[in-house]
């Protein structure tokens, strides 16, 4: 494996990220806004319900949940399907295929570069905002390490899902609708809008068989020490194996399908 080539792709990812630095500023500026909304919404619901504990969450724990949800969201974000769709439509795929490493690994290095930038500019500021204004507890070292590893697995899963969906562009060309649906489905079944504990039991059961909770909910619950570290990491690793096997199969078919003429 050519490490220098991957380093080059990662640096390119960082450069692309810095091109959109005002987006980053907007995202960081908007984070407290989103948290203020959840804070007031749940404050009024807890006061109205008159219970300190709802579905196993105190008010403070639920606010922390949303802070962590944003942190996980910033780290695991991937728009790989958009880049693949772009490559197909513009006919740029061939440029990536002739690079001295596999398509998926070049994409992965590129996204890793983007996310390294996100850690510095988005994740860390949100952590600080969470600690200072929303009483985000500091987890013990072992839990924090488990959380970091879980985050990495979550990134692998989200990237894999986005890549797999991006491969649909080899057949459909335009996948704008699928991309939008992917974002919403992952956020919903991942527990970004509301913790999965609030879902009715039948929906919780369905979501247990889907990979989405391992992208958002599991790292959050792990940080909050609601689930066992070892079991969670194993389940995430198993999903990574399943997903990347699927990617291997579909990408072989996709490459045979590729015409590389653009639209």
């Amino acid at each position: 494996m050519n490490i220098n080539a991957h380093k080059g792709m990662a640096i390119m990812g960082i450069k692309v990220a810095t091109r959109y630095r005002w987006e980053v500023v907007a995202a960081v500026a908007a984070t407290p806004l989103a948290l203020v909304i959840y804070y007031y919404l749940w404050k009024s619901i807890y006061a109205h319900t008159g219970q300190a504990l709802i579905r196993g969450f105190t008010f403070e724990e639920l606010v922390s949940y949303y802070v962590l949800s944003m942190i996980v969201g910033f780290f695991t974000w991937s728009e790989m399907d958009k880049w693949i769709e772009h490559d197909i439509i513009k006919g740029d795929l061939v440029k990536n295929l002739i690079k001295p490493f596999g398509y998926i690994s070049s994409c992965f290095s590129f996204e890793l570069g983007l996310n390294a930038y996100n850690i510095l500019t988005q994740m860390i500021p949100v952590f600080i905002i969470g600690f200072l204004f929303f009483k985000l507890p500091i987890a013990p070292l072992m839990v924090f390490l488990g959380f970091a590893l879980s985050l990495f697995f979550a990134f692998l899963l989200y990237f894999g899902l986005a890549f797999l969906l991006g491969l649909a562009a080899f057949w459909m060309k335009k996948i704008t609708g699928l991309r939008r649906a992917r974002r919403i489905i992952v956020a919903f079944f991942g527990g970004s809008f509301i913790p999965l504990a609030f879902f009715p039991p039948w929906l919780q059961e369905i979501s247990a068989y889907l990979p989405f909770q391992y992208i958002r909910s599991v790292p959050i619950l792990l940080y909050q020490q609601r689930i066992a570290i070892g079991h969670s990491l194993l389940a995430q690793a198993a999903w990574v194996v399943v997903l990347y096997t699927l990617i291997y199969i579909v990408s072989r078919k996709a490459m045979r399908k590729a015409a590389v003429v653009g639209l």
Binding site: I45, Y46, H48, T49, G50, Q51, I54, R55, I175, T176, G177, L178, R180, A181, I184, I185, A187, F188, F193, I194, F198, F199, P200
Partner: peptide, 25 residues
Amino acid sequence: AICLAKIIGDLVGPLVAIFIYANTQ
């Protein structure tokens, strides 16, 4: 897919409302 994504996206709000009202006041 775009039409379905729009509908799915907009169903999230009512679904979250159902979950909130099922578990709280």
